[in-house]
Design a protein around this nucleic acid. Sequence first.
RNA 1: CCGGCCGCAGCUCAGUCUGGUAGAGCGCGGGACUGUAGAUCCCGUGGUCCCGGGUUCAAAUCCCGGCGGCCGGACCA
Length: 324
Amino acid sequence: MDVEERMELATRNAVEVVTEDELREILETKERPVAYVGFEPSGKIHLGHKLVIDKMVDLQKAGFKVKILLADLHGYLNEKGSLEEVRETAEYNKRCFVAMGLDPKDTEFVLGSEFQLEPDYALDVYKMARHTTMKRARRSMDMIARREENPPVSQVVYPLMQALDIVHLGVDLAVGGLEQRKIHMLARDVLPKLGYEPPTCLHTPIIHGLDGDEKMSSSKGNFIAVDDDPDTIREKIMKAYCPMKETEGNPILELYRYFIFREYDEVTIERPEKYGGDVTYGSYEELERDYAAGEIHPLDLKENAARYMAEILAPVRRRLGVEA
RNA sequence: CCGGCCGCAGCUCAGUCUGGUAGAGCGCGGGACUGUAGAUCCCGUGGUCCCGGGUUCAAAUCCCGGCGGCCGGACCA
């Protein structure tokens, strides 16, 4: 695979790379570059997580060594539960990630508290604190903080640690959803002041909640979990926000764009003869164009999305050992 | 440490003064209308009234003591 092919694989379905030149240089010069993403342990692993995990699978194929941070301390700092509870959830998450297609032999899972309590790391946290304003730290948590009113101090420690994770894990490429952008930019600005290289960052899109909300999230219950059974998937999709001809912020179209066309080269919208019969598409753009033109009805879009998503997630359920 | 205000449905809050069957909006669920959802209109769901004691026939309400939050003051060695 040449560098351009690896670039293509690394950046597909991504919103941005900061910067593309840096990424290309990594691919050209590093023998075995390291890509990392961190997750706060979550009781439900959903499609928002899958988007990022899929990206890590891409990066693995593009030659990266992949590290997944199970950020137990971050979860604790962000009030996701006691340390014990958060660690238990982290174990479940690890099993989900493996079931989602990350090769466990080729992926390094790291529990945050394994290295974040070391003296060298702790001193770096204080140095970061010394070079970061309160406003900047709080702003970086805009899309991440569990609580906006009465935030505990832990919420400004959080982004400092996340920046340091990048250097202490020896990472070449930091990956995350677009909501991580402000923390990553903070890392690029401040890490050099501690004598570290500014990290290269890659951001995946934030997918809309099924209710049309800006973000799919466990707390809002507007998600499809990777271990949802086919009936649940169908039920959720049927109830989802999906205005006719509307392509902006349409969560069902996003399923096609980011998940269905990722798995299938050709996608068939099956529908009754009276509504025009089956149609097959070779790319998301063609489907989107027809939907915008009103050629595809939302109900047909949903019925078929449900069928495809159940198919895509079936292996995850099987590997997790859940009844089908 | 002192003072003021606050704590009630998943959320925002009313009700406390003057004790008497716990409310509204939003959300959520279901129906109607749509070949989807949403919008709209109906119907429904909603509770440790922060905790513990006390007074009373009766306490979300009054009294005492805690806990938690916000704001202010004091201390500034």
